[in-house]
Design a binder for these strands. Structure first.
Lengths: 151, 151
DNA sequence: GATGAAAAATCTGTGAC
DNA sequence: GTCACAGATTTTTCATC
């Protein structure tokens, strides 16, 4: 379903997204039109979902990131749905993942500083429904972040 | 430093990534050139770091994601550096974060299926240097993922 | 059905107002 | 802050294999 050329194209799009088609075609030894059509196919197939602007939120003044592990009160059958729905609406929550196992959900929360974080934590996080337990880890750095998928 | 218009622009660039300048300008009620210059400023300010192709790795056949919490052997002063450097080179490791506290590093690993995951885990993860302890959580879903920063 | 070359449409960036 | 234009880029068309 995905040939070798597709893989090479994806790898390049991942690394240098903002290069032009002729430029990329040149590197890959293709004509521009062939490359253009290949990319169309990848988009149609849902593999290429488009481009996204990379925004440096540290430059925006967000200096603090905290990773929260949440365990939910499983006596309530709607616990998951309720919790996720409410968590999704908090703008400072930039990541939500769910798990199989002792921990139910992981959230990444960003804030301008520790005071701001405390405020978000008390007013928005602790008021989320069905929380049984929370464990927080202060984040130091993101070393790698999705830049290089194994294609 | 960042006016209201900037914020709206960033919000749009985040949400609807692959729209063209005239299209976006229309939505925001601006002329194309004004928008173009605004975006230039954001780039100069380091807030906009460029574009990235969004690739759907589930469509690529990666069905499994596992989150690993790693504790390092802190008797070795080079433990962090050695570990991070080696982990970064594993293509299936798509995220690396470091923390302050009892846990040192979190890795996200993707694999085609459980067999594939076992292979990566044994051959690549367990052979990383200075590991004192690992805890794994099977990932179920990414509910939210960086799409909507609080701008 | 896929490919290459070139025209047509569209987009981006810049300079004048 | 707007308008208009030149250069670049993407997309479509058409002939070909």
């Amino acid at each position: 379903m995905l040939d070798d050329l597709d893989r090479r194209i994806l790898r390049h799009l991942q690394g240098n997204p903002s290069q032009s088609l002729p430029e990329l075609a040149d590197r890959l030894g293709l004509t521009t039109s062939r490359l253009s059509r290949k990319i169309d196919k990848l988009r149609e197939g849902g593999i290429l979902r488009g481009q996204r602007a990379v925004i440096d939120w540290q430059a925006l003044g967000y200096a603090v990131e905290v990773s929260l592990r949440v365990t939910l009160d499983k006596t309530q059958s709607r616990a998951f749905d309720d919790f996720l729905e409410a968590a999704r609406d908090i703008p400072e929550v930039i990541e939500i993942q769910t798990f199989l196992g002792q921990v139910d959900v992981r959230l990444s929360v960003i804030a301008k500083d520790m005071t701001h974080y405390q405020e978000i934590y008390r007013r928005r996080i602790l008021t989320l429904p069905h929380i049984a337990d929370i464990e927080a880890l202060m984040h130091v750095a993101r070393i790698k972040s999705d830049e290089s998928l194994p294609i």
